[in-house]
Design a protein around this nucleic acid. Structure first.
Length: 950
DNA sequence: GCTGGACCTTA
DNA sequence: GTAAGGTCCAGCA
């Protein structure tokens, strides 16, 4: 029996919809703006099934034109379906093409639903002795289950479950899978618009079925029923029979099961690859190739022999004029060795594209090479090092390229004194301010070179920053950029040094030939990307933003990161002990009330204790994965009734504090400097903000009493210094007031009023002095809500106001500030017309969903349209301030250093004798960074730690 | 060892 | 309702 042939029939639309909605929160959009979620979702499922089950027979079934018969029976059948999302409509032809390329039969019959096609085929296959698996999440199929027909259902969270007769009996509480039809007929189905019996839902249907066995038998015995139900059902006999008919899957569709056609064949990898590449499915392509790797390797392996001798610099620079043909020329080819190319992509790679990459020998060759460097106007370079952290990293080599397809690699000696000698020879190049330097993520290279006391001067072009401005929502690593814009796959770093973990080696251990190929390729690719992006910057009108903000900021950030901040480790150690004690006490308390020990940090275990064991609530809320929800806002409701809840909340708060900050920060102190060096990401936040990591110094606690203690650990360099904190007051509200030209709000700011109190006074119509705390707090919530793109729903969630009160408050708010309302709709209109919104400096955010027919998706895009210009303009302004302050600090040779940026705050290590000068300098530069209709206001604080300074 | 989800921290 | 990053658990390989 185990040799029985297995047929898998895939319900295409069900899996496509499921795939599409799986990505709904984070839709997959490729660089051409196509929403590929549905295709991706479907292909993931299909590959998954193939990988898991290795079926010998497989077909994919589609609906076509809906069910003619069912609509004839019942006009409203499936009439309440929402319009098919655009992403799904465009997905269909792609999926069909991919299936064709995979040689998988597409089964479809005009006028029939996929259910009917699958039903018919599985019964035919059964007769021929097949085991059939219906791949679908749709419960309706349960009626078809038999000894040889199974449902193969994807389950949420991954994996599949197989439903045979026993499973169906259990799930539906029936004695025969055929009764599923009666069950569906009785309870109806709102998604298919099958009416069912009035007043009968899942529970009642099961009960009736247990008693009467079928729809017909029930209708024949309605006299046994009582009361309202009897009346309902007696009046709906026809509806019941019709519902049953609608729910019945047809088994006589004119299709034929032809076992030969359904055999799972070898796919046409080349074709599939082309389609996947057009869609930009990198991960999926790899997955696909892996799934079919046995076939892939035998059909695609090529052997090439390369035998080109290394040659000294002088000769080859002439010899390279006629570039060698694709894949035949490699200076460091594996002499005489056979090389297996396992490249399934149609993209170019170093092996398929002509190039001239050469390493430079020490001595005379190096001298000549550097002389050559100094004659260029613009050079792309890329450092290779021993570590991803530039402060620790030692130079292994530097690659240079100034002509596409050509470049040089200068290896560095391991001995750091000798390395320093070599870099000294390069100093005239790096510090030459007439030679433009091009790179990908130049902040890294600048920091590495800083260690060798080299200051990179001259005009800079960073391809990563350029692309961030061109397309902020995409990722910007070089491999993606090369594949997207150059149709080229660079050598991957893991190929050279292995994956992260114990087997990883450093670049130093890589043979020189490979270092050269890899490093020069990066420089070459970056140079090509530069030529590409240069044009696009001009076309999108973001050249100035690039030249005047992001590029200069790169040096500022490098300097702040190199500086680091001093941390009081002893203070944190003692804080850790105190926290540990408090946590232990809470733990014991919780275990005592719960009656057992468990992991409080596991939401799963906690939920089971609170809601299964202790039954604190009748109907506990669940998360989308079906677990009990135990988040703060939910537990807070229960806190007043159950002492244990407050303890759990305290436990959570203190554990988080201890593990994320108090214990983690000291581990981030760098041995060499004794300070904490965060890494500012300049290209991740879609709005133009910076982000900070390793460690994140932009989310150090401040809200709670105990949390803010952590800030005491951030201290000045030494006793001669103090910390200065300068933060913009209400910068986002000032920006929206200015951009909307809302006079009332502008005047409030001009008069230096407390903006939330002022708003409260106006919307609640009370004198400024009579505004209550609650009124101010509600006004504050609305003010912030406006920045985020309010809804009455959101507002009522944040306040103690009801939905209608919230709506009324918003309405009054807009009456008070009418121009704010029109500004918001102008932003949304602009986004609809142009597909993007922009900040005061022209930084763009593209909003592909702004015209979506899905109200939820469109609503999110509209809130982005409102928020992005505000958050982004604030980011623009503080960036200008940072650049200007940095320049002044450098020019004035101050000992004071800028250390941190926290979105609207800057933190400085101030040399005490400079304090008064610096306070004026910082305040002036920040307040005058950008001229708005509204004055910018900066608050200063000075102290011996960050808490005191704030 | 890696990944996704839940939860929590900031502006 | 906007924008981020980190830690832990749980499930999978």
């Amino acid at each position: 029996m185990s040799n029985q042939k297995r047929l898998f029939l895939v319900d295409a639309y069900a899996l496509i919809f499921r795939g599409y909605y799986a990505f709904i929160k984070n839709p997959r959009i490729n660089s051409k703006g196509t929403d590929t979620s549905a295709i991706m979702g479907f292909m993931n499922s299909l590959l998954d099934v193939i990988k898991r089950e290795r079926p010998d027979h497989l077909a994919v079934c589609f609906d076509k034109g809906g069910s003619v018969d069912r609509v004839e029976m019942f006009e409203a059948y499936k009439a309440n379906r929402d319009v098919t999302p655009e992403a799904i409509k465009i997905a269909i032809p792609y999926i069909e093409d991919i299936l064709k390329a995979m040689h998988i039969p597409i089964m479809v019959k005009e006028g029939y639903e996929a259910d009917d096609v699958i039903g018919t085929l599985s019964k035919q296959a059964e007769k021929e002795g097949y085991k059939t698996f219906m791949v679908t999440p749709d419960k309706d199929f349960a009626q078809l289950v038999s000894e040889n027909i199974f449902m193969y259902r994807p389950v949420f969270g991954g994996g599949y479950e197989t439903w045979g007769i026993e499973e169906v009996k259990k799930k539906f509480e029936v004695t025969d899978p055929l009764q599923v039809i009666d069950f569906l007929g009785m309870m109806g189905d709102s998604s298919d618009n099958i009416p069912g019996l009035p007043g009968v839902g899942e529970k009642t249907a099961k009960k009736l079925l247990a008693e009467y066995g079928s729809m017909e038998n029930l209708l024949a015995n309605t006299h046994e029923l009582k009361g309202k139900m009897r009346e309902n059902i007696e009046n709906a006999k026809e509806l019941g029979l019709l519902s049953k008919k609608l729910a019945t899957i047809m088994l006589d569709v004119p299709v034929d099961f032809n076992s030969k056609d359904f055999e799972l064949d070898h796919p046409d990898i080349q074709k599939v690859t082309e389609i996947f590449e057009e869609l930009e499915f990198r991960q999926l392509l790899a997955n696909f190739v892996k799934t079919f790797s046995v076939e892939a390797e035998t059909s695609l392996t090529e052997k090439t022999t390369e035998n080109v001798k290394n040659s000294p610099l002088g000769k080859t620079s002439e010899g390279q004029k006629g570039h060698a043909g694709a894949g035949q020329f490699s200076l460091f080819g594996n002499d005489g060795e056979e090389k297996v190319i396992t490249n399934y992509s149609s993209r170019d790679t170093a092996a398929s594209k002509s190039h001239f990459y050469q390493s430079v020998a020490p001595g005379m060759a190096t001298k000549l090479f550097i002389k050559n460097l100094l004659n260029q106007k613009s050079i792309c370079f890329d450092t290779e090092t021993t570590n991803i952290d530039p402060i620790i990293a030692e130079l292994v080599g530097i690659a240079f390229s100034w002509e596409i397809g050509k470049g040089f690699y200068l290896p560095f000696p391991e001995n750091q004194a000798e390395a320093q000698e070599l870099i000294e020879q390069l100093r005239p190049f790096f510090e030459n301010d007439t030679i433009e330097k091009i790179g990908q993520n130049l902040k890294y290279d600048i920091k590495v070179l800083h260690k060798y006391n080299i200051k990179v001067q001259g005009k800079l072009f960073d391809t990563m920053l350029a692309h961030y401005l061109i397309n902020p929502d995409m990722r910007h690593n070089m491999d993606v950029l090369a594949e997207t814009y150059l149709n080229y796959t660079p050598i991957s770093i893991t190929e050279l040094i292995g994956k992260t973990g114990k087997n990883q080696i450093t670049m130093r251990d890589v043979p020189l030939e490979k270092q050269t190929e890899y490093a020069v390729e990066d420089a070459d690719v970056t140079l090509q990307l530069k030529e590409h992006f240069e044009k696009e910057l001009g076309e999108a009108n973001i050249q100035k933003l690039f030249d005047d903000i992001e590029i200069p900021l790169l040096r500022v950030l490098a300097s702040m990161e190199l500086e680091g901040i001093n941390l009081d480790e002893n203070f944190l150690k003692s804080l850790s002990v105190v926290l540990d004690n408090d946590i232990k006490t809470l733990e014991e308390n919780i275990y005592k009330v719960a009656g057992e020990t468990f992991n409080i940090a596991s939401p799963k275990q906690l939920g089971e204790i609170l809601f299964d064991k202790m039954k604190l609530v009748d109907k506990p809320k669940k998360t989308k994965t079906g677990q009990y929800a135990t988040s703060e806002d939910i537990l807070s409701y229960l806190a007043k009734d159950h002492e244990i809840i407050q303890h759990i909340l305290d436990y959570r708060g203190l554990s988080k504090l201890k593990s994320t900050y108090v214990d983690a920060l000291p581990n981030q102190v760098l041995n060499i400097t004794g300070r904490v060096h965060t890494d500012y990401m300049q290209t991740v936040a879609a709005t133009g903000r910076l982000s900070s990591n390793n460690p994140n110094l932009q989310n150090i606690p401040i809200r709670t009493e105990r949390g803010r203690e952590v800030r005491k650990a951030f201290i000045p360099r030494n006793d001669d210094y103090v910390l200065l904190s300068a933060d913009y007051s209400q910068i986002e509200l000032r920006i929206i007031a200015a951009l909307s030209k809302e006079e009332t709000m502008i005047n409030a700011f001009k008069n230096g009023e407390d903006i939330h109190a002022s708003t409260a006074s106006k919307v609640f119509n009370v004198p400024l002095n009579d505004v209550t705390r609650e009124q101010r707090s509600n006004a504050k919530t609305v003010n912030f809500g406006i920045i985020y793109g309010v809804s009455a729903f959101g507002l009522s969630n944040q306040t103690n106001l009801s939905r209608s009160e919230a709506k009324e408050l918003i309405d009054t708010y807009y009456t008070t500030y009418p121009k704010l309302r029109s500004y918001i709709s102008e932003q949304i209109d602009f986004a609809r017309d142009h597909g993007y919104v922009q900040t005061v400096l022209g930084r763009r955010r593209y909003l592909k969903d702004i015209n979506s027919r899905n109200a939820v998706v469109r609503g999110a895009a509209e809130r982005n349209a409102v928020n992005a210009p505000i958050q982004g303009s604030a980011a623009d302004i503080i960036k200008i301030a940072m650049i200007n302050i940095y320049d002044k600090l450098e020019a004035g040779n101050y000992k004071t250093k800028m250390l941190l940026q926290v979105h609207d705050e800057l933190v400085f290590d101030v040399f005490k004798p400079e304090l008064e000068t610096i306070k004026t300098l910082v305040k002036t530069e920040m307040e005058n960074a950008y001229k708005l209709e509204v004055p910018l206001d900066v608050d200063l604080g000075v102290g011996n730690d960050w808490l005191e300074a704030h």
